[in-house]
Amino acid sequence: MQRAVTTRKRTSLAGWLTEPTLAGMRRRKALLGYLFVLPTILGILVFTAGPVLVSFGLSLYKWNVFRPPTFVGLENYTRLVSDTRVLVSFANSARFVILAIGLQIVFSLLLALALRQRMATWMRYYFRTTFLLPFLLSGAATGVVLSYLLHQEFGVVNYYLGLLGIPRIPWLTSSDVVLYTVVLAYLWQFVGFSLITMLGGLSNISSEVLDAAEVDGASGWNWLWQIVLPMLSPTLLFSAVIGVIGGLQIFDQPYVMTRGGPGDASRTAVMTLYEAAFKNQEIGYASSIAVILFVVILAITAFQFAMSKRWVFYQ
């Protein structure tokens, strides 16, 4: 009985909130709003926003986990610019991103345009489903499967190329070839993803506009450059931004396929970071690599948005 009495007696704060007026409801909604965003805001502060700042801080320390950290200023950064392995891995990542993202956008755009052609519904469904299928696999599974298929001696791919009279390609064992192999593996897995993005973008353009220009007898080339690409430019920008952010962080497939080898030929920036932090336990040094990677990604994204004013048209 005691409990019933205390719950009925309301404190002034509770009264302020439960007031059966519009103002009371507005207050209740505001409080509910804060409560609802609280988990997400806290989680993001603790696990995303906070750690970024900490990364900047850690990059100024020398810290090998077992010994207490010592402040070294910019020493990690001066070491970084003369560390060939780091430089090579960043160069690899840059080459990978330019090739992989460029080809991904071109191929997925062509595929999306091809799927616009007249064909039976089941065919369109079949192509869309099969092209997206590799996207379902984990990077690890893709790496395992492709490394068998691309084996120089026993691989299925070289067998079929052999039938066409092409000599065996050292996909994973030649330092001249391996980065292209990583690009191909990326394309195999992710071209379907951006195909869907492109199809989404195309479906936003009214088909009258696309078809009318086609009927007007615009040549295929003009039609592509003057109608399709401008109208699709927001989607292209999105694909480029997402692609670069993701591509600079590529790890799973090349790690499983090559572990960065042969030599350092397929070592990406993230692999160097991983080894510095979690194999060599050089937390401070690895943080400086993380900071550089972050700054590079931010700079490229900002650059893409700045340039987009010149070529992206929003309807």
Binding site: A49, V52, L58, L273, I283, L293, F294, I297
Partner: peptide, 9 residues
């Protein structure tokens, strides 16, 4: 923010 920028902390 990429995962890489937060993973160490």
């Amino acid at each position: 923010i990429p995962l890489q920028a937060t993973i160490i902390p």
